[in-house]
Design a protein around this nucleic acid. Structure first.
Lengths: 331, 331
DNA sequence: TATGGGTACGTAATCGATTACGTAAACTTT
DNA sequence: AAAGTTTACGTAATCGATTACGTACCCATA
């Protein structure tokens, strides 16, 4: 690096490095003239802090790590973007780590994060072992949307998944549907369970039973959703609508429906979850439950910064971000 | 941080920090017994390198920065992912920066990157001022898909945009189309110009003229594509197909076509560019030109690492990644 | 005028590594 | 056996900042 150091600036300004540092950090202890002279030299030689050196001394790196399963997924990308937009103006840089939810990768990550001395971590992934490890290492952390029942020491930001499931189901009921298929992730994870609970309660409220033949847990994947719908049709199971627990699953389901000559929404109504961009361009445009990814990212950032600054790990209650129904053409 | 340092390890093992460091880096100069003893202590106390300190000493941070316009865009996300997958096993961490192509943001970035001492930079964005600045600062850099005519000192990885434009147009011609609308980005940037050149040449090869009434430069945005198609229809301009220079634009165009009762592909055929995931789930499924985002990211990474290691900035010829036609249902 | 307190600095330690250089002991070579 | 070479370390400087502590000077107050 050809950059000039504080030492050289000091010599040029005829002061000590201490004074230069003080001027740089506005920490007082210098006269106005000295300040001006130093500032002038700083400017003239285009001084840039060596962040690495500063980090070593202060043990603050001004970095935040984000762990996501897959940045390629718009949902995660939007959250990551919100986090960057929050932290970047505050002088932080963002490390991004894709785990693909592979446990080995996650295990390595926590070491790397600590080695690099990140100031905080936003975790949006599956294995809660990482957050627990982070907690042990006193690394400030918040999780998004992956609450586990037992982990009350970790703050979790989550969408109101229960309400989402309820609203989605209610929308279909309001359209006169009575045989509502729910395609959900087979994994026993809180967000999915909550959506399912909302589904059940909406039915219950309407006085309808939960027909387990219509509850379809699948491994989370577009083509599985399509297969699932095909099986329903092939087995002549009666249904008039589908609540897919993610928009991608909804797209898979719609594709299968079309291939079997079903019209949407005339024959079968479909509702998704997440509200990703493509829902506006699918045919028909997808009715869905909006998750406020920006708020999720923002709220997580705010709380994380709080933990980082206060250096205290508050038993903060989990934050629930409201969801909303986005009515389009598929219901 | 509660982590143990090299100094403490040294004391515990009864050696100097120099020896511990040598063992850590496998640089020789110690007996087998010493090595074993040190390794044992290292293991026992779960030593982790302080990367910040190491970086300060070696002036290598083992970080790579990625500058993208918008990580929320699947195209960029896939490239970024490929880059991470390349560098991460080599011990690098990835900084990600979204610029939204805002010039001020980009200008700030280059300073930050240098301050943080990133070892290399992959640049996928618009303003070539950043790469030039990086070059001046001797920061290893490669660009993706934004070649400018005059900047031969910077290595650029790009898709074969000309070939893509040619293939797309040829596909429509093969389907019997003669009035092919091209919806392109209005900006005078190399990738778009190349796609357009491919379009022109494919027509020429077939002995057809370029009808400028069918050449539609728009500001890059889905709804503008829709408007553009509406205008064509409203003005009764004859066309039998559309080559949209990005899949997103194709979706906008298809939506407008549907709203005007045009069937795809029976009435109007549509082809896109990029091959983003959603093209498989649109209706009809979108025929498109595949950009190999993984190879783009990989190739960029390889070359970047090369520059980083050799510390030389070779006048490397630009790398062109092949594209291919993905035939689906919209043509 | 002596004392006390504030201002404006400088000195030097420090963060946690790496590494050039020095050196004692062991081992070769003739 | 003397000289040279190699091995296996340790010492201390260094990377570029921050900051506790010391101190000289100035000014106000008793």
């Amino acid at each position: 690096m050809a950059t000039i150091t504080i030492k050289e600036i000091a010599k040029l300004a005829g002061v000590s490095t201490a004074t230069v540092s003080r001027v740089l950090n506005n920490s007082g202890g210098y006269s106005d003239e000295t300040k001006l002279r130093v500032l002038e030299i700083l400017e003239k030689f285009n001084y840039q802090t060596n962040v690495v050196a500063k980090s070593l001394r202060t043990s603050l790196t001004k970095t935040v790590g984000i762990i996501v399963p897959d940045i390629t997924n718009e949902y995660y990308a939007l959250i990551a973007l919100a986090i960057e937009n929050y932290f970047s103006p505050k002088g932080y840089s963002i490390y991004i780590y894709n785990t693909n939810e592979e446990p080995e990768k996650e295990r390595l990550l926590i070491r790397d994060l600590e080695s690099r001395g990140v100031d905080g971590l936003v975790y949006i992934s599956g294995k809660m072992s990482v957050p627990r490890e982070a907690l042990k290492k006193r690394l400030p952390i918040v999780c998004i949307n992956r609450r586990e029942e037992m982990s009350e020491e970790i703050t979790v930001i989550e969408s109101d998944n229960y309400q989402g499931g309820f609203l989605a189901t209610e929308e279909l009921l309001n359209q006169g549907c009575t045989n509502i298929v729910i395609i959900r992730d087979e994994r026993d994870i809180v967000p999915m369970n909550e959506r399912y609970r909302g589904y059940c309660d909406a039915l219950k409220k309407k006085g309808l039973p939960v027909n387990l033949e219509l509850v379809k847990p699948i491994s989370f994947n577009v083509s599985h959703a399509a297969e699932c719908v095909e099986n329903l049709i092939r087995n002549h199971i009666q249904f008039d609508s589908i609540f897919a627990c993610s928009d991608m699953l909804a797209f898979g389901a719609m594709q299968a429906l079309r291939e079997h000559g079903k019209r949407i929404p005339e024959d079968i109504k479909v509702i998704g979850f997440d509200n990703i961009t493509f829902g506006r361009y699918s045919h028909p445009q997808l009715t869905t439950i909006n998750q406020d990814k920006e708020r999720l990212g923002e709220a997580a950032s705010e709380i994380l910064l709080n933990i980082m600054e206060k250096k205290e790990r508050p038993k903060q209650p989990n934050i629930v971000i409201p969801v909303s129904l986005v009515k389009r053409k598929s219901t």
